[in-house]
């Protein structure tokens, strides 16, 4: 492991160029994708590749932490907020400042050129890696722990304070104080009965959807018991007509209501016909039997 961290082999160069390209493409996708969800996924890809780079550079602990904390926790938090805010919320293309995007892109390119030229000019000590073989001799995690709890112990404790502050801050920022007392169950029930007892202006047929006033009870359930219980089948009123109230408003608006008020009779008729064919009776007998009229209609 330590030897791997010391020498920059050909394999590592290949890995660097392949994964580095993907990382840059992912970063470009983050800023160029129109939808925030796609940006988040591109950024997650870039972060995973960075984790691979950390592992290749001998930062085994950081590589694992990068995957767990960044792609596991932070990116999921991002996706959670994107879902909360609305997946379809794309950027507005209206420019508040004229030409701001182009100037921003130009500034970005200029900044990049300056920085990369600066790195090219700087003398960075050794031209090759010293390698972490010595530092990681007792294990990467042990080496990090030894530093964190000795040299950087105050920074570490400040980090703890920072995390607690952040947690409290997030709770304070998203918490909403209830401005009025929560209504009790009794008050809710009384309100429901009061609203329901308002008289209907012009009483339509109770089967129609615009019944005009609120029911104090839950709406009647769809389906005809013992035969159909699908949600798109209207329940039947005592006189046999289907009641639109029993079907949800969405299906009503789409016109996806199936009417089965006549289906039962038709089924019965078909069944009788089949059984008669089975038994070898013909219609004449039945006609004589005095139940011929329904049979004829069935055919």
């Amino acid at each position: 492991m330590s030897a791997l961290a010391a020498a920059a082999s050909t394999g590592e160069a290949v890995q660097f160029w392949v994964l580095g390209t993907v990382a840059v493409v992912g970063a470009l996708g983050t800023i160029l994708m129109k939808k925030a969800v796609h940006s988040a996924l591109c950024l997650a890809a870039t972060m995973i590749i960075l984790a691979v780079f950390y592992l290749a550079n001998g930062a085994y602990f950081l590589g694992v932490v990068q995957i767990i904390v960044y792609t596991g926790a932070i990116m999921m938090l991002f996706l959670f907020v994107v879902m909360l805010v609305g997946v379809t919320a794309a950027d507005s293309l209206k420019e508040t400042l004229k030409g701001q995007r182009w100037w921003a892109a130009l500034c970005g390119i200029g900044f990049g050129v300056l920085m990369i030229a600066g790195i090219g000019q700087a003398s960075l000590g050794p031209g090759a890696f010293v390698g972490l073989g010595e530092a990681n001799a007792a294990g990467n995690v042990q080496g990090l722990a030894a530093l964190i709890f000795t040299k950087y112990v105050f920074a570490f404790e400040a980090t703890g304070a920072l995390l607690i502050t952040a947690a409290v801050g997030a709770m304070v920022l998203t918490h909403r104080e209830r401005t009025e007392r929560a209504r009790t169950q009794r008050e809710l029930a009384e309100q429901r009965v009061r609203e329901a007892s308002a008289p209907p202006s012009a009483a339509p047929h109770p089967a129609s959807a615009d019944y005009g006033w609120k029911l104090p009870t839950p709406l009647p359930a769809p389906g005809v018991y013992a035969r159909h219980n699908a949600v798109d089948i209207a329940g039947l009123l005592p006189d046999g007509t289907p009641s639109e109230l029993t079907v949800s408003k969405t299906l009503r608006d789409r016109g996806q209501i199936r009417d089965v008020s006549r289906e039962a009779l038709n089924d019965l008729r078909a069944l009788e016909q089949r059984s008669e064919e089975r038994l070898g009776r013909d219609c004449d007998e039945l006609d004589r039997g005095g139940r011929g009229e329904g049979q004829e209609a069935g055919r």
């Binding site: 961290a5 550079n57 001998g58 930062a59 602990f61 950081l62 932490v65 960075l124 000590g125 050794p126 890696f129 010293v130 390698g131 972490l132 073989g133 010595e134 530092a135 990681n136 990467n140 080496g143 990090l144 530093l147 964190i148 040299k151 950087y152």
Partner: peptide
Amino acid sequence: SRMHGNLDGQIIAF
């Protein structure tokens, strides 16, 4: 951190 052979860079990244 790898270039200079010590873990301080990794601590700062952490």
